[in-house]
Design a protein around this nucleic acid. Structure first.
Length: 467
DNA sequence: TGAAATGTTGGGGCG
DNA sequence: ACGCCCCAACATTTC
């Protein structure tokens, strides 16, 4: 009689390089499950959930319709399944959010007591936080030494595993796939957004291959120009584990060349690791300033400004293009993410947590670790963060990185007819230029909601008060 | 993975 | 031809 193993999929929605799946298959027959965890303290945002639906649909397909998608309390669901089907072990790949760590520990303890074997694996990060320590035996606080001395001197990451041979358990009972997940009606608005992506494990591999072929050679420079899209766009796949960081890492390492470009890309992958690392040592990363002096920062609570930012109606075209890209595609180019975040935090002086929340809801790639670490990075309140006084000028950034206004015209079409010089800052364009482009400020496109120079000054003065 | 203010230099216009 | 000034262009400092 072969053993019956539950493989609990979480952020590892793939069959290749999936250690928990591989081991579960080695030792017996499997019951693959996904649980919509109702007690998660920070449930995924709307965009993220929409992606998840598609991803689960795809995973179910490659599992020949054997994936059970169940909703409720994970411990209850797993216990019931064990009892109904006579399982002897549960396999999963480790998660690293504070909530998941606590939940999994509890489940492991409870089930072990009942004689069930729990096997957990490392699958979604290259280096687990507790394995990387500095010379004093503490955790690193600065990225470069963390990466160079910590990670790169540590054991090499696992090389990717092949897809295992799977035998499914013949279930004794029926388990209705949860309708909430498969119901697309609720997320009708996301249909169009999702069509722009090829979701699932195969799509992830295609995306990576295309990036390596077309964009990697020019990554370090090209990634700064939002119109070029010389970026990997792999983050949503990586978040849900449709591809593993190991697969990406070795796809780059095993190229027949290694240069400034490949290094630059691997460094970005390492920033993701650093985010997980920080989250592990600072479980409140998403809610509390790592630099506590920021607790006294005089944030403005201007609802109108926040909404203008969210809707892409600030009157600064690069900001508005970025925010509309987010709304229309569930994604935003990285350079623009930094600029819009700087604008919200420093020019509007709105608490970074408001921005973090909006991104959490709108981004397909919304990731608890990366999102909070990155917002704290821009705010200057995080570990090894950008200094507060590094304030982006959205007009300067626009001229530098979207000189022809290609990106702006794509997402802010009402400015399409403006000339290349005026398009970066319509509020300071000549009346003739505006008229020729058919633009009436305040009517067809908003007037700049704030003045850059004075708000910059205001931010610097506010920063002085908390120093 | 800035930007603005301030400092320095050197070519060219001009009296 | 010379000194003076202007001001780009670049470098350094500051936030």
């Amino acid at each position: 009689m072969p053993t019956k193993n539950i493989i609990w999929f979480r952020n590892d929605l793939r069959l290749t390089d999936n250690p928990a799946l591989t081991e579960a298959c080695k030792s017996g027959q499997i019951i693959p499950i996904y649980i919509i965890d109702e007690s998660d303290t920070y449930p995924a945002g709307k965009a993220s959930n929409a992606w998840l639906q598609q991803s689960l649909t795809d995973l179910n397909k490659v599992l020949n319709n054997h994936l059970l998608i169940l909703k409720g309390q994970p411990l209850d669901i797993i216990s019931k399944l064990i009892k109904n089907e006579g399982c002897t072990s549960v396999y999963w790949n480790r998660c690293y959010t504070p909530y998941a760590i606590k939940r999994d520990k509890h489940i492991q303890k409870t089930l072990t007591k009942q004689g069930i074997d729990i096997f957990s694996f490392q699958a979604s990060i290259l280096w687990e936080p507790w394995t990387i320590k500095n010379q004093q035996g503490s955790h690193y606080k600065v990225f470069t030494p963390y990466y160079k001395k910590g990670c790169l001197q540590a054991t090499d990451p696992r090389t990717p595993l092949k897809k295992p041979k799977i035998t499914f358990v013949q279930l004794k009972k029926k388990y209705p796939i949860d309708k909430i997940v498969i119901n697309t009606e609720k997320y009708d608005w996301t249909k169009k957004l999702l069509q722009q992506w090829s979701i699932g494990e195969t799509g992830a591999k295609k995306r990576l291959t295309a990036f390596i072929k077309n964009d990697l050679h020019n990554y370090s420079q090209g990634r700064d120009f939002p119109a070029l899209e010389h970026i990997s766009k792999i983050s949503p796949y990586l978040h849900f584990g449709e591809i593993s960081p190991n697969q990406i890492y070795y796809a780059i390492k095993q190229l027949d060349y290694s240069d400034h470009e490949t290094e630059a890309f691997l460094r970005e992958l390492a920033w993701r690791e650093f985010s997980y690392y920080l989250l592990y040592f600072y479980p409140n990363l998403a809610t509390k300033n790592l630099k506590t002096n920021f607790d006294h920062f005089p944030w403005k609570n201007n609802k109108k400004h926040l909404i203008a930012w969210q809707q892409g109606m600030t009157g600064y075209p690069l900001i508005d293009a970025g925010m509309r890209e987010l709304w229309q595609t569930g994604f935003m180019h990285n350079r623009v993410r930094m600029v819009v975040a700087s604008f919200l935090i420093k020019n509007l002086m709105i608490d970074w947590r408001k921005g973090e929340a909006w991104f959490w809801d709108c981004l397909f790639d919304a990731d608890w670790a990366s999102n909070s670490a990155s917002w704290q990075w821009v705010a200057g309140s995080g570990a090894d963060a950008a200094p507060f006084f590094r304030i982006f000028n959205p007009v300067t950034q626009s001229k530098k990185f979207d000189p022809e206004g290609v990106y702006i015209r794509k997402y802010v079409p009402e400015l399409a007819k403006l000339d290349n010089k005026s398009i970066h800052d319509p509020s300071s364009a000549t009346p003739i230029a505006l008229q020729q482009a058919g633009i009436t400020l305040g009517k067809t496109y908003p007037k700049a909601i704030i003045d850059l120079k004075s708000t910059r000054q205001r931010a610097l003065e506010a920063y002085q008060t908390i120093k």
